[in-house]
Design a protein around this nucleic acid. Sequence first.
DNA 1: CTGAAAGCGCTTACAG
DNA 2: CTGAAAGCGCTTACAG
Lengths: 338, 338
Amino acid sequence: MKRRTTINDIAKELNITAATVSRALSNHPEISAKTKKTVQEAAKRLDYTQNQIASSLRSGKTHVIGVMIPTAEHPFFGSVIHGISNLASKNGYAVLIYQSNESYDYEVQGIKTFIGARVDGIIASLSKETSDYTHFLDAKKRNIPIVFFDRVNDDLGIPCVVIDDYQGAYFATEHLIKQGYRRIGHISGPQYIKAFNERLKGYVSALQANQIPFDPALVYQGNISIEAGKAGTRHLLSLESAPDAIFTVEDFTALGVLKELKEQSITVPGQFGLFGFSNELFSAHTSPALTTIDQQTVPMGEESFTLLHTMMETGRTDTMKIILDPIPIIRESALPKH
Amino acid sequence: MKRRTTINDIAKELNITAATVSRALSNHPEISAKTKKTVQEAAKRLDYTQNQIASSLRSGKTHVIGVMIPTAEHPFFGSVIHGISNLASKNGYAVLIYQSNESYDYEVQGIKTFIGARVDGIIASLSKETSDYTHFLDAKKRNIPIVFFDRVNDDLGIPCVVIDDYQGAYFATEHLIKQGYRRIGHISGPQYIKAFNERLKGYVSALQANQIPFDPALVYQGNISIEAGKAGTRHLLSLESAPDAIFTVEDFTALGVLKELKEQSITVPGQFGLFGFSNELFSAHTSPALTTIDQQTVPMGEESFTLLHTMMETGRTDTMKIILDPIPIIRESALPKH
DNA sequence: CTGAAAGCGCTTACAG
DNA sequence: CTGAAAGCGCTTACAG
C-alpha cells in the first residue's frame, strides 16, 4: 500500500515549500506563471489529487451538502435528487444522501450524520412521522443553511420549495367542469399532510367559482392507494346522485378509480371524467392515459439547490419560499363529456 | 457565529486532556467508567458533535462510500440506492452520490471527486458511453475497493453484482412455450450491452431445449423503447409465418408491443402471448398486466454494499461475482393460449 | 487509568 | 513572488 502523494512530496521534488505548492495548485494570483506550470506538471507526474478532507478541516468548508429524503425507492425523490445532484456537481459540491424511511428516529439520526460530516448545507423533505423539529433547529443553530422541499414546514423560518397544490387542484377541477362534467367528486388523502389539504381547498374553490355548490358528500377520505381509489369510487357511485367525474388527490388513487370504473363498465372519458395529480411514471401508460398534474420534480431539485447555494455563499438567512407552477398534463381521461 | 465545541473545550471544562476526552467518547476500554460518564455528560451539556472531518484526516478512514449511477431519474437506480443506503447507514457509512448522466466525461469527473473525498470504497454502474476504464483502475491502484453492479465489466478484476439475464430470458421463453405458444418472437436491444446479449442467448437456448428451431427472422433489433416495441411488432406480424407470442428485452418495449397489438385488435393473452423483462413500475398497471422478470433491485443494492463492506473491512481483493436470481412475476399477459 | 506530544495534509496571515 | 510557522480537531504510540 503506497502512501498517496501530498503537497509535501511535490514541494520536496521541486525544492520549494508546501505553501507555494498549495498556492500554485489553487491558482493564487501572486504565484508566477512559471512556478504554477512546474508545480502542475509535478502534480500530474506524481499522480497527485488534493485531499479534500485536509482542505476541509483547515478551511472550514467541506463543499458537501446533505440531502434527506423519505426514500430513494419513490421515483419522485429520485427525480428531485437528479435535479439537485446535477447542479451541485456543476457548482463543485458533492451530495451526501440519507433516507429517513419515513421514520422520525432515522431522520434525527441522519441530521446528526450531516452535522458530524460538517456539511455546508442541508436539503430535506420531511418524513411522514415528523412533528418535532428540534433536529432541524439544532442544525440551524449551528449555522448550517437548510432548505425544505415538497414536504415542508412553514413555521420554522426555513426556506422551502413547493408546487402550488391549491392552483393545481383548482385547475383540475375547473378543467373537468369546462369539459362538460357537472357533478365532480374528490377522493382525498390524509388531511394532516398539507399538500393534500391544499388540493381539497383548490377543489372546493373551483366548484364555487363556477357556481357549482360544494357537496361534502362528494368528498371521499382515502389514503393515497389504488385500493382507496377503488373503494372511493364504489362509495361515490352508490350515492343517490352520483358524480360524473372524479378528481383524485394523486395518481395511484386515480389508477384505482380507473380499475373500478372498468369493472363497472363505465366508459372513461365521455361517460365519466377523471383527473389525477402527480404524474407518476405509469400515468402515461394506462388506458385511457391519465390526465394529471406534473409536479416539476427536476426543477424542484434545481430550485432547492439554487436556494441553498445562495444561502451558503452569501450567508442570507431570510426565509424565502419558492412556489413552482403545477403543470397540467392533458391526456385522455378528462376529454369532453358527450 | 459561535464556534462549535471541540474535545478541547470539554477537556478544559473538566480539567483533563483532550486525549482522555477522545478516548472516553470512543469508549476506550482503559478509561474508567467514572471518567466516561463525566465526559459524556459534559459533551451533552456543551452540545458536542464529533468532527468527522478531523477524525477522518487523522485515522485515514472517512466512513464514506461513493456511489456512481447513470441517473437518479431511473427508478431502477433509485431502488438500488435504497438498498445500498440503508445497509450503509446501519453499518456507520455515509453515501456520496454522483450521476454520470450516461457520459464518460462525467463518470471520470465523479471518480476524481470520490478520490478527492477519500471515500473508503466505491459502488458503480457504468455509463452507456464508457469503454475506457482507466479511471476505475486508477481508483483501484489507490487501494480504493470497488464493486460494480448491473452494468459491469468482467475484465478488470473488479467484483460485481448482477442478475442472471440468461436464466431470466430462458425462463420467460420456456414459460411462453409451456403456455401453448409456438412461434415466439424476440424484440431485442443493443447487443453491445451484455445483459441484452445474454437475454438473446437465453431465448435461443430455451427454444432449442424445447425442440423449437431458432428462426433468426423472429428476432427484431430494437432500442429499448415503446416505439421499438411497436415497430418490432408491426414487422414481426408482417412476416409470412408470424409469431403468436413475443418475449421482449425489457418492459418499455413490451408496452409498445401491447399498444400495437391493441391497435391491431389482437387479444392478449389467449390469442397472443407477451413476456417482458425488468418489472418497471408501470408493468403491474397496464391492461393486461405485464408478465415479466423482476431484477431484484433492492437486494442488488444490499449485496453490493455487503460485498464492498467485506472488502473495506478485510482488505480482500479477490474478484467475487454475485449472480442474483431473476424473479418471474406472473401476471396476465402470458396466460395460456386457447 | 491518564497525560504529553506528534502528526494527518492542507491553508493562510504575516514577513520579507 | 515565496517562505516559515501556526493551526484546523482529532487519534494514538509511548510513557508513567
